[in-house]
Design a protein around this nucleic acid. Structure first.
Length: 415
DNA sequence: TCTGGGGTCCTAGGACCC
DNA sequence: TCTGGGGTCCTAGGACCC
């Protein structure tokens, strides 16, 4: 059997761990720039606050019910996620960390309701985060089991046995199947497929023809045939993207250049952490698509490196060449981003015949910079192009302390 | 006033080869 | 009159996930 452990309302729960005052109260966490609701406590869900809703649209509800609002604090969530995963690993040998708040667990040795309950209790006790566990024969069914654990059990644990599969699928809407999104749910309903059970009953050839190979796999998984195994090896990323909306829209070239330089540098740092190099870099800009009256412009350009690189100097300067090409000062931009692509492992780099850079020396320099920044704080050493004033930076008005990752933010206790 | 960020996989179609 | 068949590789766009 495969288990799926999923943290309940993860970001909202993180905010509560070190702030007991907000227990039992409605809590929402907003996306970057304090834009949309991306996490809700049960009390906030009960107020009918929807996932992804722009905060400014529901301001009256938030005020009326005294909802506690937080900006995203990824330093906190990332750290608590690691604690949860480590606790799971202390109980289960094979754990696939699937996302910041989810992990697949190998229950092939023995799976029981009681074992899952004790794991759940341990995670709560050790980290303060409540989780739900669903257990079933395949990953997709484990997702179903988790769904049931969250919605219909008091304990937060559900074991989906073979004999109960049909009954469970009957009560699961087709759009709630893992891997069926909005588009395909709409399409399926047009053909009269409304529940997960309906989905398991459609002709497999028809499914292959009308949808994709994934739909076929999905059907098999729902019937208990395993198509997806646990992925225990960490794989290298194939693309790395850093992008942000600006706190304030702008057409100022220098501000945008600073932002793009910072995003490009972050991509380079991420590449070096992965021990990878990239062949290509793309830069994009976006105007505010919600503003009907504004001139819209979504330029995007990709440039190549002759030799794959993770060098900040090269990546940032190439990003700036790209920016120069696509920037148009008649437009007010809302967002910019840098993507590095065609990624290869750093020990598989094929150098260009005409390469002129002393790469060994540059690598040592980058290593030193990374080390110093690790010890002394992010961007302590930076490229001049990154600048200091950060006029493009995001809005984060409701940021909670980094309780676990910054010395000055550690809680003090009065006895 | 105000609307997120970071990924993966699949497919169709174009360009090219012999 | 009449215009093939079998491939590979790359890319953009779509769909999905959290």
């Amino acid at each position: 059997m495969i288990g799926l452990a999923d943290c309940n309302n993860f970001y909202a729960s993180c905010e509560r761990v070190f702030n007991p005052k907000i227990k039992g109260k409605p809590v929402v966490v907003l996306s970057n720039n304090d834009g949309c609701v991306i996490a809700r406590s049960n009390e906030a869900k009960a107020l009918n606050i929807k996932m992804g809703e722009p905060a400014f649209k529901i301001k009256p509800i938030l005020q009326k019910h005294k909802v506690h609002i937080f900006s995203t604090n990824f330093a906190l969530y990332g750290d608590l996620s690691e604690r949860v995963m480590n606790t799971l690993k202390s109980e289960i040998n094979k754990v696939e960390v699937y996302s910041i708040d989810e992990a697949f667990l190998d229950f092939s040795d023995f799976s029981s309701f009681d074992r899952a309950m004790s794991i759940r209790k341990k995670v709560k006790q050790w980290t303060g985060i409540p989780i739900s566990i669903g257990i079933a024969p395949t990953k997709t069914l484990a997702k179903v089991a988790n769904h049931i654990a969250k919605k219909s059990t008091k304990e937060g644990v559900f074991v989906l046995r073979e004999r109960d599969i049909t009954r469970s699928l009957q009560h699961l809407a087709v759009e709630d199947i893992w891997g069926v999104g909005r588009r395909n749910a709409f399409k399926l309903k047009q053909y009269g497929v409304y529940t997960a059970l309906d989905f398991t009953n459609v002709n497999i050839e028809w499914l292959r023809r009308k949808f994709s190979i994934n739909a076929v796999r999905l059907q098999k998984e729902l019937k208990g045939e395993r198509c997806y195994e646990l992925e225990l090896k960490k794989t290298k990323k194939k693309n790395i993207c850093t992008s942000r909306s600006f706190g304030k829209e702008t057409n100022n070239y220098n501000i945008i250049k600073q932002a793009v330089s910072n995003f490009a540098n972050t991509c380079a740092v991420k590449l070096r952490n992965e021990r990878s190099c990239c062949y290509k870099i793309s830069v994009f800009l976006m105007t505010n698509r919600h503003k009907a009256s504004a001139v819209q412009h979504f330029p995007y350009i990709t440039l190549n490196f002759n030799t794959p690189t993770s060098d900040s100097f090269e990546i940032v300067s190439k990003a700036n060449i790209a920016l120069q090409t696509i920037y148009n000062n008649a437009c007010i931009y809302k967002k910019a981003g840098v993507i590095v692509q065609s990624i290869v492992s750093e020990n598989e780099v094929q150098a260009s015949l005409f390469d002129t850079i002393d790469r060994k020396k540059r690598n040592r320099l980058m290593c030193s910079i990374d080390k110093i920044n690790m010890l002394m704080g992010r961007d302590k050493i930076r490229l001049a192009a990154q600048g200091f004033d950060r006029k493009w930076k995001l809005k984060q008005e409701k940021l909670s302390p980094c309780y676990t990752t910054r010395f000055s933010d550690i809680l003090s206790v009065n006895i």
